[in-house]
Write a protein that binds this DNA or RNA. Structure first.
Lengths: 339, 339
DNA sequence: CAGCGCATGGCAATCGGTTGTCAAGAGCGT
DNA sequence: ACGCTCTTGACAACCGATTGCCATGCGCTG
C-alpha cells in the first residue's frame, strides 16, 4: 500500500526503483546521474526499472537538493510586441534542446516589475535572459551579480550581451533616404529608458553629421501602434519629409495615422522602421525597415547563458555577441515630394 | 558564520527568522501561512523580522512539502501566432494577480510535444490551460484526469472549457457576403486536427444550407501566412467569389498572394478572416474578420482553473464558458464581381 | 481551588532527490 | 598468502518548507 508500482498510481520515485531493484535509493540516484560510478549490471537493472515504472525525476526535489532548478527566466517588456516573438521562440527552442525549461515573464514595461521578477527568479531559475531591460545600469549590474544573466540589446559592464546591431544599418537607411532626395529627416524615438533607442539615435545623428544632413529627434513615444498617431502628427508638424522610426510598431501606427490625415506614403512622407516585425511586410504600404536574425539572437543568448552555467563545456565565454542588421527596402520610402 | 543575516548573503530562510526571533522554524511557517494560529505579538515580531531579512519563500521547497507548486502551465501550439498574444497576456495577468506563476510552452503544433509537456507539467504545475489542443479526445481526457485542466477552444467530456464562439458569427459573415451578392463561397480550412476549424466549417455549412447558398471547403492548410499562397491559388481555381478563412494568418497570406497574381481584393475576390489578430486592421486591404475578447478568454480560463484548485472559494465551477464573437467589417469584402 | 479546555508553539517526520563519507569486497601485485 | 588499492554501494545528512502531534501554560468556570 505504501509503494505501489502501478502505472496509474502517483509518479514513481527513486525509492520505488530502489525497492524494485533491491538497492539503496542513493545508488539509483547515482546510476541515473553518474552512470560510470555504478556497476554496469546494476546500472542496467536500474535503468530498466526506471523505464518500466515510467520514472521521471521530480524537478522540485532535484532543485531543492542540488541547487540547480533547470529553469531559465526570459524577461521581455511586452509579450504582445511582435518583436519578441522570434526572440522567445529562439530561446525556447534552444533551452528545450539543452534540457532547460523557459520561464517567460512579461515585465509590463515597468522597472519595478522587472526588479521584483529578477529577485524572485533568483531562487527559482538558474539564470535569466533580460531583453530590453528598463532597469538602470546600477540595478541591472546588481542583479547580474546575484545570478547568471545575459542581456539582449543592453550593454552593462560585466554582463554578457547579445546586441542586435540596428545602429549599424542607420547609415544605410540614411543613404537610402538621401539618394531619394531627402535632406530633412526626423528620428522618432522610443522610450526614454530604452538604451536601444538611444543607440539608434546616436548612430543616426553621427551618420547625418558625416553626410551634412539635418536630423532631429522627436518623441519619446511608447513602443505601441497607438503611439503612431501622435508620432505622425509630430512628424508632420516638424516639416520633415522622412522619418526613421524607433520600431515598426510605432511606424505602422504612423502609416495608419498619415492615411487618416489624407497624406500618402511615400509620396508625401517616407517612413523607415526598425526590427522587421510580423506585419511589416503586409502593412500598407509595406514598410521599409531594418532586419535582423532575431530568432538566432535568442539562440545565441541561450548559448551564452549556458556557457556561464556550465563553464566546463567547450566554447569560450564570449561576453558580447553582435547580430548583423541590414536595410530591407519596401514600399514606405520614395522620392522626396517636389512641391 | 552558519547563519548570517546580512542583506547580501544568500536568501533568508524561515530558520534565519526563527533564530532572530528566538522561536522554532515551524512557528515562523505558521505565522506566515496561518497568521490566526499564532499569538499576535509573536506574529508581528516574525513578520517584522521577515521584512527586515528581506525574506521570500523558496518556491521549490514549498512545492516539495506542500505538493502545490504555485505554477500553472499554459500550452499553445505556436507562440508566434498573434492569436495567442492576447490570450497569453490575459492568462499572465490573471495568474499573476492570483499569485501564480505562468509556465508558457510552445507545443510546436505537435501532439507528441503536447503530450510529453503535459506529463512533465503534472509534477511541476498545479494545473494547465491548453489552448487549441492537437491531442485526440482520449489522450486529452486522460491528461485531464491526472491534473486540473481548462481547455480553450476545445470541447472534451468532463473538461472545463472556454470556447471562443467564432461559429456563432458565421451566419453574420455569410449574410454579409450574400448581401454583397456572393452566391459561391469557399471555406478555407485549418489543420485537420483542429476542432476549431471543424466547428467553424459545420456552422458555416449549416448557415449556407438554410440560406440555400453553395459553400465548399478547401484545405486543410497550416495556420501560417505562408500557407496563404496555396490557399489563394486553390480558391481562385475553385471559382468562388468569396472566401471565409479559418484564421487571419492564412487570410493575410491570401491577400498577399492574390495581389501578386494581380487579383484585386475585394473587387475580384472577397476575403473574410477569423480572430481579428494583430495586423488584421492594417494589412492591405484591412481584413473583414470575426472579433472576440481574447484577452478576456485568457482571464476566464484562469478563473475556471483556480476554481478547480481552490474549490472552497466562491464562484460555482462553471464547466463551460462561451466568449461572444461578432463580425468586424473592413475593406477585404465587397460586391461580387459583375463580369 | 480544582479541573477543564483552548490557545500557543515546539518537535519531528516528510516531500524526493543529491552528495560526502565510509565500510566491505574484489582484484591485483609481490 | 598477505596486504594494498580501487571499485562499489549503503548510510545519513541536507536542501527549505509544511504539518500532524503533543506538551506547556494560560484563563475560565463551577
Amino acid at each position: 500500500m505504501a509503494t505501489q508500482p502501478m502505472a496509474t498510481g502517483r509518479p514513481a520515485t527513486i525509492h520505488d526503483i530502489a525497492a524494485l531493484c533491491g538497492v539503496a535509493a542513493s545508488t539509483v540516484s547515482r546510476a541515473l546521474a553518474n552512470p560510470e560510478r555504478v556497476n554496469i549490471r546494476t546500472r542496467e537493472r536500474i535503468q530498466a526499472a526506471a523505464v518500466e515504472l515510467n520514472y521521471t525525476p521530480n524537478s522540485q526535489a532535484k532543485a531543492l537538493s542540488s541547487g540547480r532548478t533547470g529553469a531559465v527566466g526570459v524577461l521581455v517588456p511586452d509579450i504582445t510586441n511582435p518583436f519578441y516573438f522570434d526572440l522567445i521562440r529562439g530561446t525556447q527552442l534552444q533551452l528545450k534542446a539543452a534540457g532547460y525549461t523557459q520561464l517567460l515573464v512579461d515585465t509590463e514595461e515597468s522597472d519595478e516589475v522587472e526588479a521584483s521578477t529578477l529577485e524572485q527568479l533568483r531562487k527559482s531559475a538558474d539564470g535569466v535572459i533580460v531583453a530590453a531591460s528598463r532597469l538602470n545600469d546600477e540595478a541591472l549590474a546588481a542583479a547580474a551579480a546575484r545570478m547568471p544573466m545575459v542581456t539582449v540589446n543592453r550593454d552593462v559592464d560585466g554582463v554578457p550581451a547579445v546586441i542586435i546591431d540596428t545602429p549599424s544599418a542607420m547609415p544605410q537607411a540614411l543613404d537610402h533616404l538621401i539618394s531619394l532626395g531627402h535632406t530633412s529627416v526626423a528620428y522618432v524615438s522610443g522610450p526614454a529608458v530604452s538604451q536601444s533607442s538611444a543607440r539608434r539615435w546616436i548612430a543616426l545623428s553621427e551618420a547625418a553629421e558625416e553626410r551634412r544632413v539635418a536630423v532631429r529627434s522627436i518623441g519619446p513615444f511608447a513602443p505601441k501602434t497607438q503611439s503612431g498617431a501622435a508620432a505622425a502628427d509630430a512628424a508632420v508638424h516638424s516639416g520633415v519629409t522622412a522619418c526613421i522610426v524607433f520600431n515598426d510598431l510605432i511606424a505602422i501606427g504612423m502609416l495608419q495615422r498619415l492615411r487618416e490625415r489624407g497624406l500618402r506614403v511615400p509620396e508625401d512622407m517616407s517612413i523607415v522602421g526598425c526590427d522587421d516585425i510580423f506585419g511589416a511586410d503586409f502593412c500598407n504600404p509595406p514598410l521599409t525597415t531594418m532586419s535582423s536574425p532575431i530568432e538566432q539572437a535568442g539562440r545565441v543568448a541561450v548559448s551564452m547563458l549556458l556557457a556561464q552555467l556550465n563553464p566546463l563545456a567547450g566554447g569560450g565565454n564570449r561576453s558580447r555577441s553582435v547580430m548583423p542588421t541590414h536595410l530591407t527596402v519596401r514600399g514606405s520610402t520614395g522620392p522626396v515630394p517636389t512641391n
